[in-house]
């Protein structure tokens, strides 16, 4: 019996992780302006968040991530080059720990993403922040992707091979 419940817990953890992967990916792709705009909207109605207490486990810091590729796309790995990345870790009073790893050098954005990641793990704020941040921002990103795809698709080409003169 204990085994089964243990498995169930693990399963739940896995689900949360994949949810978390989704929101971190959406938040990492937002501009600071977008995030701040939504945050301001949220704090207007939720006074509790205005002076949300949290402490830094790691203040925002910029460093490098070495990006790897694979020969032929699926072969031997190699180091392609670096990308600037900023990370930040915060801890809420409820002991929820929020992480941010974002491409770029924006410390404010990293801090805000870390705070949102922490809040998204709390029962109190999870729903609300999904509604205000994750869902609309995710669909905006998805729409931008599809819009670009349909613009790019106009340059899809059908080549006709011509018979060479000497062969005719």
């Amino acid at each position: 019996m204990t085994d089964v419940s243990g498995q169930k817990d693990q399963l739940n953890q896995k689900d949360t992780n994949s949810e978390r992967q989704k929101w971190l990916s959406v938040l990492a792709r937002c501009t600071l302006q977008d995030l701040q705009h939504h945050w301001n909207e949220l704090t207007k109605s939720e006074a509790d968040l205005n002076n949300l207490p949290y402490r830094f486990l790691r203040k925002a810091e910029t460093g490098l991530v070495m990006v790897r590729g694979r020969a032929g796309g699926d072969g031997q790995q190699f180091n392609l080059g670096e990308v600037s990345v900023t990370r930040c870790t915060v801890c809420l009073d409820s002991d929820h720990i929020g992480y941010a790893y974002i491409r770029g050098r924006d410390h404010k954005k990293a801090e805000l993403v870390a705070v949102l990641d922490a809040l998204l793990q709390t029962n109190r704020w999870s729903q609300k922040i999904r509604e205000i941040f994750v869902t609309p921002l995710a669909s905006a990103q998805e729409k931008a992707k599809l819009d670009r795809k349909s613009q790019i698709a106009t340059s899809k080409v059908d080549f006709f091979t011509m018979v060479r003169g000497e062969d005719a």
Partner: peptide, 19 residues
């Protein structure tokens, strides 16, 4: 700058293609 990590190999087969 400090080196924070190595990435997982990028998936060019999943590229959002521009060309």
């Amino acid at each position: 700058l400090p080196r924070l990590a190595y990435s997982l190999p990028i998936r060019t087969d999943k590229m959002n293609v521009e060309r």
